[in-house]
Design a protein around this nucleic acid. Sequence first.
DNA 1: AGTGTTGTGTCAGATCATGACATCATTTAG
DNA 2: CTAAATGATGTCATGATCTGACACAACACT
Lengths: 191, 191
Amino acid sequence: MPRWPEDSRARLVDSAVTLFAEHGYHSTTVDHIAARAGVTARTFFRHFSDKEEVLFADDDTVLPGMLASIAEPTGPVSAAELMQRTLTQLAEVMQPQRSVLTARQRIIETDVALTGRELAKQARWQQGVATALIERGFTADDAEVLSAIGFAIFVRALHSWLADNNGPTLADRVRDALPRARTVLDVVSSR
Amino acid sequence: MPRWPEDSRARLVDSAVTLFAEHGYHSTTVDHIAARAGVTARTFFRHFSDKEEVLFADDDTVLPGMLASIAEPTGPVSAAELMQRTLTQLAEVMQPQRSVLTARQRIIETDVALTGRELAKQARWQQGVATALIERGFTADDAEVLSAIGFAIFVRALHSWLADNNGPTLADRVRDALPRARTVLDVVSSR
DNA sequence: AGTGTTGTGTCAGATCATGACATCATTTAG
DNA sequence: CTAAATGATGTCATGATCTGACACAACACT
C-alpha cells in the first residue's frame, strides 16, 4: 500500500493536456494542473523542470530507437537508406499516437515558446542522427546535410498527416518524401 | 531637449547583450539590465514583451527584404534561382553584423528556450518565403520543400561561418550550399 | 493657452520556479 | 525484530518574470 496514489507524473501529464486543451496554455496555471492531479505545485516542479516540459516529457524516449535503427544494419548501406530507415522507424512510433499528437500540436501552435521548444527538440534529434551517421563512416558534411533535409521533409509529412485524417499513413508519406525531395531539387535546378 | 535620455530601447539591448555575455543569461535579471540602461524594469517590458525578446528585437526587419528579393525579379525565373537570391540577400544583410551575431549566438546556445525562439523565428521566415514563392506561381509542395531545404542549408552555412573566422564569406558559403545539397542527395541516392 | 500624446515612474499583484526542511510509508541493514 | 536509510510528497519562504492601473512631465499641435 503506497503512501500516495501512484503515477503522479502520468496524472500530471494527463491533467495538463486536458486543461491546456480546455482553457488554453496561458490561462492554465501550474496550481490548476497540480490540483487536478491531486498534488501540490511543488510536486509538479519535481517531475518537470518547467510548465512547458510537461508537454515534451516523453520526447527523449524516442531518440534511442532512431539511433539504434541507424547503428543496427550490418554490411554496406547508403546514408540515404539509413536516413529512410530512421525516419520510417520514427513514423511508426508516432503513428499509433495520432490523436494525442493532434491535441498536442493544437496546443503547441497557440504559443511561440512551445513552438520553439518543439523545434529545439527536433534540432537535437537531427544532430543525434547526424552524429550516428558520422559514426558509420560518412563525412560530417554529407551526414549533416542529409539529416537536415531528412528532418525538414519529415516534419512536412508529419504536419500534412496531422492535418489530413483520411490520406496515406504517416509511414507512407515519409517513404515517398525523400525521393520526392530529390525530384524537386532536380526540377528547380534544371534551368 | 527631451525629458529623458533618448534611445532607451537601444541602451536596453546593449545592456542586455553585455550582461548576458558577462554573467550568463539566467544570472542576469531584468532589473540588472534596466538599471544599467538607467530605466526601470517596467520600462524594459514596455519595449520587449519578455526577457528573451531583447535578443530578437531586430529579427522582423529582415523578412521584408527577403520577400522583396523574391517578388522583384521580372520575367520567367526558376524557384531555385529565387531561393538562391533570397538567401544571398539574407547573407549580405547578416555579413556586416558578424561580431554581434557571434556574441548573440554564444548566448543563445546556453539556453534551450533561446535556441527554441531562434528556431521559431527561422520557421516564420521559412514560411514567409514559401508563401512568396507560391504567390509567384510555384506549387505549394515545391515551394515548401525548397524553402525548408534552403533554410536548413543556410543555417548550416551560417553556423560554419560563425565558427570559422578565416574561411570564405557567408555569401560565398551560401552560394555554394544549394548546388552542393543536390550533389549530396545525388550521391546518397545512387546506391 | 489648452489639449492630446508619449515615454516613463510607482505600486500592487499573479504566476513561475527553487531552496530548505519536515513527514511518513516502504525498504533495507544489522 | 528493530532501526536506519530511502523516496515521494508537503509546507514555507523567497526570488524572478510579467501585467494592470494610475500618475506625471515634456513635447507637439492647434
